[in-house]
Simulated scan of single mutants.
Amino acid sequence: MKKSLIALAVLGLSSAAMAQSSVTLYGVADAGVGQIKSDGVGSNDASTKTEFLGASTMNNGTSRLGVRGVEDLGGGLQVGFNFETGLDLDNGAQASSGGTMWGRQANMWLGGNWGTVKLGRQFTPSYLVESTYDLTGAANYSALANTYNYGTNQNVGSRAPSAFAYVSPTFYGFKVAAAYVTKHDLNGDSDAYDLGALYNQGPIAIGASVNKVEDHKTAYQVGGKYNFGMFAVAGSYSQTTDGDLRRRGFSLGASANWGAFTLTGDVTRDSKNELTGKKYTNGVVEAKYALSKRTFVYGAYLRFDGDNNWGLGVRHNF
């Protein structure tokens, strides 16, 4: 009897300990067909011929597999991690940002009601800001992201390696984020910082960020979106840099949805372009139809720096 009671007590304690931590496997599968002529932010697995798209600029997103976990330490304190790798459904090859196995995410964090400190490869604050008002949801074929690189230096983009970051808790829709990368951890032996602030509550989403790599001009962005219900409008002004070279301009866009169907158009226009020496008007038209809460089909046309690109595909989140 005593042994049974002890066994039950141990089992109860074990269950309580297990309940305080969890690990989740998640991912995205995205594939389609299209034609790519531009070399944008997304990785290209297609040529100027019409062919399979598995991890390209004209996919809505890059297929991925990730694992994340969290443990409750008590007293409102938690610790967690996130590892994520990219996949090319064309041939099953690894397709992560930066060309490394866990190049999409490789970090751990410690958080509480005071905010979260995150260490490792992770999204930049500039990406977090841009994704709040980008009408395509920062899709691979986003005209805004491809033209102005999420308002960051050309050597940075949506993710930063070896970053020390802090993200505040959300207070009435408002939060701030800051990240720093030491000079020995970034290409070119230069340190970098990234600061962002955003408000996202109700129909309004606005944000601004500043990204600075040592010995380069400062990159920045400011933008916002207003959702009327069936319709949404957005606009921004951004600058990306590479050394002393700058590319900056504005974007304007609108989106409309009728039940499961959404139609989006977004246009960017350079006011200065020292990266290519020519000012461009870029744009994207996207149509999506939701088959469920986790699956949708899409079609997109991207005009980028004088080239025409298109894609048709299906995306499933799990």
Rank of each mutant, 00 (worst) to 15 (best):
G306Y: 03
T264C: 10
E71I: 13
R68P: 01
L263P: 14
V284Y: 00
I204W: 15
S142E: 02
G86K: 02
K175L: 12
W109P: 04
H316N: 01
L5P: 00
V314Q: 00
F250I: 15
G223N: 11
N187Y: 04
L263F: 13
L252T: 09
M230F: 08
V117E: 01
L65V: 08
N44K: 13
Q35A: 15
D134T: 10
L25F: 14
S251N: 14
N155F: 02
A31W: 09
K3T: 05
S251H: 14
G277W: 02
A208L: 12
V314D: 00
L291E: 07
V117N: 03
T124R: 00
G54C: 08
F123Y: 11
N59W: 02
G76L: 09
A19P: 11
A163K: 05
L110S: 05
G42A: 14
I36Q: 15
G80Q: 03
Y220Q: 11
V28H: 06
K37G: 15
G76D: 08
K279V: 02
T132M: 06
G313S: 06
S168R: 02
G196V: 01
L87Y: 09
F250M: 15
N200H: 14
T50P: 07
F171D: 11
M18I: 07
F231Y: 15
A290V: 02
